[in-house]
Write a protein that binds this DNA or RNA. Structure first.
Lengths: 212, 212
DNA sequence: GAATTGTTTAACAATTTTGTTAATGCAAAA
DNA sequence: TTTTGCATTAACAAAATTGTTAAACAATTC
């Protein structure tokens, strides 16, 4: 055999398909292009995955579950104090999105284009998410009672966190040329942006008194 | 003539194309489907716009400029005090996106797919945006000197505002089934979400002292 | 080494989609 | 009324894209 490991061709095709689907979307992706990227004939792709649709399902499954995993990252470590937990959650979620910058756009597009895809996903994760945020909401309420933080709706807080973390990467290509030197150095900008998101969330939940 | 106004068919095609391109993207859109929506033969579409590409350009131009217009909305009314100005900006930007909920996804996708499109746009608006935020930054710095607000980087603030306003609509279909009763009534949720975004930004910029 | 099984290729078929054209209609100008 | 020019249609052509198949090939098992 030419390829060391069994399934090497299959894996090559999957890797190429991931690239292609994430950047181009389902409609934009070409099976011939995927095959070319993978270095195989396009008949091979059909041999392994039968149809474009089935190949796509494989990628969707993988990516959707990565995405839902990233949502849990917001929850942070349950053993920590609630405030640290939220802030840690913001940071780890930011890091996750930074490592998978193409994922949000892909997920959003696929959901709009094929709502049926996420029905399945939602059924799988809805109750877990529900349980998690109920638990965290209790902690928040308790901390709020003690005057340690503002009483906030944890779901609203999640939306804010995801908004700021995800949008940073969604809009990067659009904003970059408009922001002058601020975004010139990507690494540095992301560091600043992460700190800004943390600060913004922190101020949202900290008990504070107006000076003015 | 059958159609009252001149250019009625042309307008019908443009409206149908807008619908189709915004929801399906360039690759997902079908010229035959656009023609069907518009109630004309697909040859008519080619007669008026020659190619799918040219029809698409028309829509892109229109939508990109709407999008850049929405960025200016964040700036608010220059005659007002800076704090009101920012808050008013958040609100009017939110309202704009609420009226054009498909726009952000479209713009983001087109930019990733065809960076050359936004080069043109950026050249048109970069200096205006630059001037506007320099002006607002001065106001912020002045207010900060007087202890009326925090000293913040206006560009970072814009990113936060756009993040929270836009993401609300981007992720709506994904979040809705996960959020229980919170998002069940769209109107009510959007009202809450707008208030939440305002509150978050307000807390980010207000001079505050920790209680804890 | 013969049979079996899974892999690979090249050629081809089917379909979808975009784009063209030649013929027709229709309204206003000459 | 004839002509001119735009609008419209239906049929067709071209291209791209997905999917199939039969045959060759390689590896493994018996």
């Amino acid at each position: 055999m030419e390829n060391k490991e069994k399934g090497s061709k299959e894996k090559q095709i999957l890797a190429a398909a991931e690239q292609e689907f994430l950047t181009m979307g389902y409609d934009g992706a070409r099976t011939t292009s995927i095959a070319r990227r993978a270095g195989v004939t396009h008949a091979m792709l059909h041999y392994y995955f039968r149809t474009k649709e089935q190949l796509f399902e494989r990628i969707v499954d993988e990516k959707f579950s990565a995405m839902s995993h990233s949502m849990f990252a917001i929850m942070g470590d349950p053993s920590l104090p609630v405030l640290e937990r939220i802030i840690g959650g913001v940071e780890s979620h930011f890091d996750f999105v930074a490592e998978n910058p193409l994922l949000p756009r892909f997920v959003i597009n696929e959901i709009v284009a094929r709502p049926e895809h996420c029905d399945i996903l939602h059924k799988r994760i809805a109750h877990v998410v529900g349980a998690l945020y109920r638990e965290l909401q209790l902690e928040i309420d308790r901390a709020a009672e003690n005057g340690e933080m503002e009483r906030v709706d944890v779901r609203m807080l999640f939306i804010s966190i995801m908004s700021m973390n995800i949008f940073t990467f969604l809009a990067y290509p659009f904003m970059e040329p408009l922001m002058g030197e601020l975004m010139a150095d990507r690494e540095q900008f992301l560091k600043k942006r992460k700190a800004e998101n943390v600060e913004t969330i922190l101020r949202r939940i900290k008990k504070q008194k107006d000076v003015v």
